[in-house]
Design a protein around this nucleic acid. Structure first.
Length: 268
DNA sequence: GCACATGTTCTCGG
DNA sequence: CCCGAGAACATGTG
C-alpha cells in the first residue's frame, strides 16, 4: 500500500538508524524469489558497505554507500522496512545487521516488493524509467508533462514514468481536491486547472507525510505505529458515502484496472 | 467458495 | 511511438 508519503515516512524514520553505519551481516530467507539481485550476490557485496545516505525517488528507497554502489528497495503492496525487533515469522525476507548492532528487516507478505543491488557506476532500468518525483516537481514541469497526454488524467498520474510516487489513493484524493473528473483526457485540462492539481497534490502529499501516511490494511511505520492520514481521506474507499462538498453520493468505477472514487457533480 | 486488494510489468490488441 | 485492456505475480481478508 505504500505510495510516496508512506515511503517518505519510512525513509525519515530509518535514516538516523541506518545512515553512518556499516553493514556487518546479511541474512536472507530461503528459498526466496523476492530479490532482483540474488541472495548470494547480496551476501557477497553488502557486508562492509558504509551507508552515506538514505534517499527516495517516487516509491523507491535507495541506500547509498561510500563506494558509490546503492541498494534499491521497493515495498510493493505490503512491504515493511523496519529497525524494530520483529517476532520470527515467515514473511521476513531480508535482515541487515548494522555495525551498531541494530537490524533493518524487510517484511513482505505478498512478495511484490523488490530489492536490487546496484554496483558503483551502474544504473538500474527501473530507476532510469522514473519521471520527476511528485513531491519536488515544479508547476511548469508538471503541467508540461501532462498537457501533451491524451490518457485519462488519473491513468497519467499513476504512470511512474510521467510522475513518480503517486498511487491510487493520492491520485483520487488530489483529483477530488482540484475538481477534475478522473476520466478526463489530460490534454483537455486547462493550464490553470493543472496548476491547481499540482498545488493540491503537493499539499496532500505533504500533509500525509506529516500525518505519518495512510494505513488502509497493512502499512505500518517503521516504529510499528499506524499512519494517521487515512482519517483525512475525502473520497478514497468512500463509495456511496456523501460527498464532503455537495452531499451527493460518491461514485466508484474501475479505471485502468484500478478502483476509482469521485464525485460526478464536483469533478468535471 | 467468491470478490477484492494500495504496485509493477508484460503481452496483445488497435 | 502512443494508448488501453487484461493478465500475471503471491497471499491475505471479509
Amino acid at each position: 500500500l505504500p505510495e510516496l508519503p508512506e515511503v517518505e515516512v519510512v525513509r525519515r524514520q530509518l535514516e538516523p538508524t541506518w545512515v553512518g553505519q556499516t553493514i556487518a551481516e546479511v541474512w536472507t530467507a530461503s528459498p526466496s524469489y523476492f530479490f532482483l539481485t540474488s541472495p548470494r550476490i547480496l551476501k557477497r557485496r553488502l557486508p562492509g558497505q558504509l551507508t552515506v545516505a538514505l534517499e527516495r525517488h517516487g516509491k523507491y528507497i535507495l541506500a547509498r554507500f561510500d563506494g558509490g554502489s546503492r541498494l534499491l528497495c521497493h515495498l510493493g503492496m505490503t512491504g515493511q522496512l523496519t529497525a524494530r525487533a520483529l517476532a520470527p515469522d515467515p514473511h521476513v525476507h531480508l535482515r541487515l545487521t548494522l555495525s551498531s548492532g541494530e537490524q533493518i528487516s524487510f517484511r513482505d507478505v505478498r512478495k511484490f516488493g523488490k530489492v536490487e543491488f546496484i554496483s558503483e557506476g551502474s544504473s538500474s532500468p527501473r530507476l532510469d524509467k522514473l519521471g520527476p518525483d511528485a513531491l519536488t516537481i515544479d508547476a511548469d514541469t508538471f503541467t508540461a508533462r501532462l498537457q501533451s497526454r491524451s490518457l485519462a488524467i488519473k491513468t497519467a498520474l499513476l504512470n511512474q514514468s510521467i510522475l513518480a510516487g503517486v498511487g491510487n489513493i493520492y491520485a483520487d484524493e488530489a483529483l477530488f481536491a482540484s475538481g477534475i473528473v478522473p476520466t478526463r483526457p489530460a490534454r483537455t485540462i486547462s493550464r490553470a486547472k493543472l496548476e491547481r492539481l499540482h498545488s493540491e497534490l503537493n499539499r496532500i502529499l505533504t500533509a500525509s507525510i506529516q500525518g505519518g501516511g495512510s494505513t488502509i490494511n497493512d502499512y505500518l511505520k517503521p516504529d510499528g505505529a499506524l499512519g494517521g492520514y487515512q482519517d483525512w481521506h475525502q473520497v478514497y474507499g468512500k463509495r456511496g458515502e456523501a460527498c464532503p462538498l455537495c452531499g451527493r453520493s460518491l461514485r466508484h468505477r474501475v479505471l485502468g484496472g484500478r478502483s476509482t472514487h469521485y464525485c460526478s457533480h464536483c469533478q468535471r
